[in-house]
Amino acid sequence: MTVEELITQLQALPPKTPVLVEGYETGFDGIVDLAEQHVAQYRNAQEWDGEYQALDRFTKPERVALKTVVILGRRGDRR
């Protein structure tokens, strides 16, 4: 994905929507897509954890849900 393509997709979203990257181990991948994701901030994150986690990890997700956009890399399905 190019900067131009990313900007075009981001302009279609509300300006205050947080944009996140996949958190895992090392390295970087090219961007292949964007996905809207409801997540919650994970206050007890270890250094290897992402700062945000899927809602199914929380007992009361409706209280902490945050609508975000996740930038998906080429190997995101392996994480």
Rank of each mutant, 00 (worst) to 15 (best):
M1E: 12
M1F: 07
M1G: 11
T2W: 12
V3W: 15
Q9R: 15
L10D: 04
Q11K: 13
L13Y: 09
L13K: 11
L13D: 00
P14L: 07
P15S: 05
P15F: 09
P15M: 09
K16E: 02
K16N: 13
P18A: 05
V19L: 12
V19A: 04
L20C: 15
V21L: 09
E22L: 13
G23Y: 15
G23C: 15
G23T: 15
E25Q: 08
E25G: 07
G27E: 01
F28C: 08
G30M: 12
V32E: 00
D33L: 08
L34S: 02
Q37P: 03
V39P: 03
V39D: 00
A40V: 03
N44W: 07
N44P: 02
A45H: 11
Q46W: 14
E47H: 05
W48L: 07
D49Q: 06
G50P: 05
G50T: 08
Y52F: 15
Y52N: 05
Y52A: 04
Q53P: 03
A54T: 07
L55W: 00
D56E: 04
F58M: 01
F58G: 00
P61Q: 08
R63F: 03
R63N: 09
V64N: 08
A65T: 06
L66K: 10
L66D: 00
K67V: 12
T68S: 01
V69P: 03
V69D: 00
V70S: 01
V70A: 01
I71Y: 02
L72C: 10
R74N: 06
R74F: 11
R75M: 05
D77S: 10
D77Y: 10
R79A: 15
